[in-house]
Amino acid sequence: MLIRRETPADIDAIRTVTNLAFKNGPEALLIDQLREDEGWIPELSLVENEVLGHVVCTRGYIGDVPALGLGPISVHPEHQRAGVGSALMHAVLGAAEARGERAVILLGSPDYYSRFGFRMAAEFGITPPVAEWEPYFQARFFGSVVGGPFRYAEPFNRL
């Protein structure tokens, strides 16, 4: 399975797969808004070669320390449970580590994301922007990080 950086030609396909995966929720619009934000990191917006899936990490902060916010991640419903999501996760985490990033934060199922080395962010004193997210708020570290409140790129505040 080939994972690569998104190109401008992929944007419509990314919208389609994201809308299908999230049942036309706000995630596709969020990705469009993230592309226009200063927190956008082009080399961390990855697709499965045929755009059967997409993942993105954008600049976030733990207190004043740079970190990454992972998400949304989407896989076309007809291709879920076929390894696309796992391949995207491994690729984006490898790319983040290669860039020298210290931490990746996400909101998602602890049962699923623990296989990628994520642990509950509260264990490290990292708090989510919304208190109710805490049972699903997770962190993966590549370097030393201190605790504190996490903030996503600004477009997440519009959700």
Rank of each mutant, 00 (worst) to 15 (best):
A91K: 06
A9P: 00
G147Q: 03
H76P: 04
I62N: 02
V55P: 05
M89R: 09
Y61Q: 02
G148W: 08
A82Y: 00
F150G: 07
G63P: 03
F137T: 14
A131I: 01
E78H: 09
P72K: 00
L2T: 15
A122N: 03
R119S: 15
P26Q: 08
L70G: 04
L68R: 07
G63Y: 09
M1C: 03
K23W: 07
V130P: 00
T58P: 14
F142H: 14
F124S: 13
H79S: 14
P77R: 02
R99D: 11
H79D: 12
L52C: 05
P77Y: 06
G69F: 10
G147C: 03
E50M: 01
R5Y: 04
N157D: 12
I62H: 10
A91W: 11
V146F: 08
D10P: 00
G148I: 09
F150Q: 11
V55R: 02
S109D: 15
T16N: 13
P66I: 05
F141R: 03
S114H: 07
A96V: 05
F156R: 02
M120E: 15
A9V: 00
D32K: 00
P66Q: 12
L106A: 06
P135Y: 11
G71A: 13
I41C: 08
R119H: 12
N24E: 14
M89P: 06
N49Q: 12
G25N: 09
G83A: 01
G100A: 11
I126K: 01
L70T: 03
G94Y: 10
V47T: 07
A98I: 01
W40P: 01
I105Y: 09
R35Q: 12
G125M: 04
W40V: 03
L159K: 02
P149I: 04
F156M: 05
R81E: 15
L159V: 09
A9K: 01
G71T: 10
R4A: 11
P66C: 04
A95E: 15
D10H: 00
L2H: 06
Q33C: 01
A91M: 15
S114F: 01
L34Q: 09
D32T: 06
C57I: 07
N19P: 01
V17W: 14
L93V: 03
E97A: 10
L93D: 14
W40S: 06
D111T: 15
I31C: 14
R140Y: 10
L52M: 02
N19K: 00
G69C: 09
A67G: 06
V75I: 06
F116L: 10
F141M: 13
A131S: 12
Q33R: 08
R140P: 07
P128Q: 14
I11V: 05
A28H: 10
G85W: 07
I31R: 07
T16Y: 11
D37H: 05
A13T: 05
M120P: 08
Y152R: 08
T7C: 07
D64L: 02
C57Q: 12
V55W: 13
L159R: 08
R81P: 01
E154S: 04
A121Q: 13
N24R: 05
I105F: 14
M89H: 07
P66M: 11
V92E: 15
G53Y: 11
V75C: 04
V146D: 14
E43C: 08
D37R: 03
F137A: 14
H76Q: 11
V65S: 15
I41P: 02
N24C: 08
P149R: 14
L46W: 12
L52R: 12
